[in-house]
């Protein structure tokens, strides 16, 4: 995954920073003073739960806060488009074709007179679903592989990590293009992943290539966690490997997992859009995805630029928000991890 590290947090790295403190926004903030007093004297204030501490760190990341709010708004209007527009996203009014953005059609209309705003909102449902589904499926796979490699070590670790390296070396887009045609040629592939260019098949093949960063991160964390005393205590109490993994080790990686899931939502949305743009993404739905809309209208950008601009802006806005959210979550949940 990409590396989106944020500034040193005042209070946590105050000693390391030395002369390079940010000009004014640091130690005087009430949070930092709280943190310092909690750490320093530990008498005057009640200890804060990890959740509250995380929330405080998250709150300080203003872009992430704004992004979280925007994402909520976007999800609401995408999944309940009636709130913003009552236009039909499929059938349009041919007399009102190719209109520029106006008060009645905020984002203009396409060559069939379909309201572009309505199309974008309805089409967004697919993009958001793909992003979430791919992130969740690949998270499950990645956590399982990373946890096994980190916990059992030895040859299993070696094998799983070599497989991970192999997958990382495969050119993503080329592999996706080729695999997206698999169900069209193979009956068995069709029964496993579903129809060609369907939501299910695209989510499946995308997930095949999104689990590697998660596996690496979880493995790294488990490698150090498994030497901790609480694991020894659990083992002394008679807990089996499975229980130690599922109840003790994996929950301790929650921060890293959440951050990674968020960032892969962004990557998945971008990749699906690129696939759609090339004609190998999700097709056959009544309303096209954002990437497909751009591909469809790219010939007319000189005369009707709004048909290309608005779907593109939609992708950009969602992915930007998700990336900022991931960055804020990293500061909040996983402050130690600064590189992915």
């Amino acid at each position: 995954m990409t590396e989106l590290e944020h500034e040193h947090r005042p209070g946590e790295h105050a000693v390391v920073l030395q002369g390079e403190l940010p000009p004014d926004d640091s130690l005087e903030t009430p949070d930092a003073v709280d943190a310092l007093t909690t750490a320093g004297q530990g008498l005057s204030t009640k200890p804060l739960s990890p959740g509250r501490l995380a929330w405080r760190r998250f709150r300080r990341h203003k872009p992430a806060l704004v992004s979280a709010f925007l994402l909520v708004v976007i999800s609401v209007v995408v999944f309940f488009p009636q709130l913003l527009t009552s236009s039909d996203p499929i059938r349009g009014n041919p007399k009102a074709a190719n209109q520029a953005p106006s008060a009645t059609h905020w984002f203009g209309t396409n060559n069939l007179g379909v309201d572009q705003l309505s199309r974008i909102l309805h089409g967004g449902q697919i993009s958001l679903k793909v992003g979430l589904a791919v992130a969740l499926v690949s998270a499950v796979v990645g956590v399982a592989i990373g946890a096994m490699a980190g916990y059992y070590g030895k040859w299993l670790d070696n094998l799983l990590m070599r497989v991970t390296d192999l997958f990382l070396a495969i050119p993503l887009l080329v592999a996706l293009i080729i695999l997206s045609r698999l169900p069209a040629q193979n009956k068995w592939a069709q029964t496993v992943v579903g129809e060609t260019n369907s939501l299910r098949s695209i989510v499946t093949i995308l997930s095949l290539f999104f689990w590697m960063p998660m596996a690496r991160i979880v493995r790294g964390q488990i490698l150090s966690l498994k030497e901790k005393e609480f694991v020894e205590a659990a083992r002394a109490l008679g807990a089996r490997d499975r229980r130690i993994l599922v109840r003790h080790l994996v929950p301790n990686c929650t921060g890293a997992i959440v951050v990674n899931v968020t960032l892969s939502v962004a990557a998945a949305i971008l990749t699906e859009a690129a696939l759609s743009f090339l004609g190998y993404g999700i097709q056959g739905t009544l309303i096209p995805t954002w990437g497909f809309m751009i591909a469809d209208e790219k010939g007319s950008y000189q005369t009707h630029p709004w048909l290309v601009l608005f779907p593109g802006m939609a992708i950009l806005l969602v992915v930007l928000c998700v990336n900022y959210l991931g960055d804020g979550l990293r500061d909040a949940l996983d402050p130690k991890q600064r590189k992915v």
């Binding site: 690129a274 790219k298 950008y301 950009l316």
Partner: peptide
């Protein structure tokens, strides 16, 4: 860089063209 990470490459190329 957040912007560069979040913009779909094909969209960026189209905007450059436009």
């Amino acid at each position: 860089s957040f912007f560069g990470l979040s913009i779909p490459p094909f969209f960026f190329g189209l905007i450059l063209q436009i």
